[in-house]
């Protein structure tokens, strides 16, 4: 037996102790922050719902919180959010997926090394820039083709949010396609398949859960988008079916009240907590769903 390595404790290792508690504090601070936010949201919303019945809020069709006679039906705001999100998804999902397929399956390595960072750059542009782009470019273009369009209109907002979330769809879907093992492509080619058949019938179905997750993440970004829609689509709560008119989304409403001179503490002010709570529930559901899909997808490949 050697006694070079004793098994006795050498006393507390102080540096490790400090590092560990330092790291722990950092984690704790973000957990606490999230907790505080949720607490405030819940508390103020509950306050709000003592004055406005939940059913009136969820199913009311008039959103007039700031003037008398006031009305607190959130449907117009939900509708605005839905119009923007669905419109943006119509643009971003097909175009984003097609770009991902092109980058992953067809582009030469040279093209890919140029295009991929460009897309990632696009995803990093501040959203207010997209709003500015909508006001100064998309809307004038729309109005020159269809003179009936309002200066603030839903279509412009949907287009610009669609452009904004497109890189998210493209880069995340590309990652999902690239994760498909090359041996599957080879196996398919060896059966006399064309590139198109390999891509559409083997690669895309295999990467489908990753693609769906990218769709959901992009959609949840569209739901939570604020600046670009406020600038493009304006601030008129409406259940209108026409995309020529101004609408208001949940986020745009929050901005409007936060920036305005609504006195804190009043019922009008508390509305923003109620709608923020609703928004939180929607995006949480979308994110959870996409995480769940992604985790299933990883399990398939282990």
């Amino acid at each position: 037996m050697t006694n070079k390595h004793t098994l006795e404790k050498r006393g507390i290792r102080w540096n490790e102790y400090f590092i560990r508690s330092g790291l722990g504090l950092c984690t704790l601070s973000s957990v606490v922050t999230t907790g505080v936010i949720i607490y405030i949201l819940v508390k103020e919303s509950l306050d709000f719902f003592t004055e406005v019945p939940l059913m009136d809020f969820l199913f009311g069709t008039q959103w007039v919180p700031l003037f008398e006679p006031s009305s607190y039906g959130v449907l117009p705001l939900l509708w605005g959010t839905l119009v923007i999100t669905v419109g943006a998804a119509f643009i971003a999902l097909p175009v984003g997926l097609a770009s991902a397929v092109y980058i992953s399956e067809y582009a030469s390595p040279k093209v890919r090394t140029i295009v991929k960072p460009l897309l990632e750059l696009l995803a990093g542009i501040p959203t207010v820039v997209y709003g500015y782009f909508a006001l100064t470019f998309v809307t004038p273009l729309l109005r020159s083709v269809f003179p009936g369009f309002n200066v603030f209109n839903a279509l412009s907002g949907a287009i610009v949010v669609g452009i904004m979330i497109l890189p998210t769809v493209a880069t995340l879907s590309d990652n999902a396609l690239r994760a498909v093992p090359d041996t599957l492509r080879q196996g398919a080619y060896a059966l006399g398949a064309t590139s198109f058949e390999v891509t559409t019938q083997v690669v895309v179905p295999t990467g489908l859960s990753g693609i769906m997750a990218s769709f959901l993440l992009a959609i949840s970004r569209a739901v939570g988008e604020t600046m670009a829609v406020t600038l493009a689509a304006g601030a008129t709560p409406s259940l209108s079916l026409s995309m020529q008119e101004s609408i208001q989304t949940i986020t745009a409403y929050i901005v409007q009240v936060s920036l305005g001179d609504t006195p804190a503490g009043g019922i009008a002010y508390k509305t923003i907590f109620a709608v923020a709570g609703l928004l939180f529930v929607i995006t949480l559901a979308l994110n959870t769903l996409s995480q769940w899909i992604l985790s299933r997808y990883q399990a398939e490949y282990d």
Binding site: P181, L184, A190, T206
Partner: peptide, 11 residues
């Protein structure tokens, strides 16, 4: 036709 070193069935 071809059979590869590692089995590569489609999912």
């Amino acid at each position: 036709g071809m059979v590869f070193q590692k089995p590569n069935p489609f999912p």
